[in-house]
Amino acid sequence: MSREHEQGMSVIVKTITRLTVGLILLYGIYILVHGHISPGGGFPGGIIIALSFIHLMLAYGKDAALKKLPRYVTSFLEGFGALMFLAIALLGFSGGYFFLNFISKGEPFKLFSAGTILLSNLAISLKVGAGLFAIFVALILFRFDDEGEEE
């Protein structure tokens, strides 16, 4: 077997992963953007998006996933998501109140409705998704560091 196959799991898992990982990502995005009109929202959406990357990491090993989403990008996205949420909250001051829903609410049950909720969901999903992935990577990589220390 070539070097590529030593990392990660067997060919079957890799093939299935290649087929499903995009669907998982899409499903996460769907949950995320429909958060204000159906069950779901920023947190579940972000978790599912993070799960697609975790799935990739489990099947292909850490290098393949970290090439797609390096650690500095993760930590940047995490901070950015939090600041974006804070910024949306602060922009509410344009209407006089913290967290005011200052964008027009639109028509109920349409995708672009509910004002800032969609944007807030986006920010939350960035924060949660990046956070979960960062936690996972930190816990996974820590054990490698530890084994390295032993040798």
Partner: peptide, 23 residues
């Protein structure tokens, strides 16, 4: 949902501390 997020954070931290302790 909020409380689950909080549990996620504290559990992750506990696990990280446990791994360090094991090390």
């Amino acid at each position: 949902l909020t409380s689950i997020v909080i549990s996620l954070a504290s559990t992750a931290l506990l696990i990280a501390i446990a791994m360090r302790i094991y090390q």
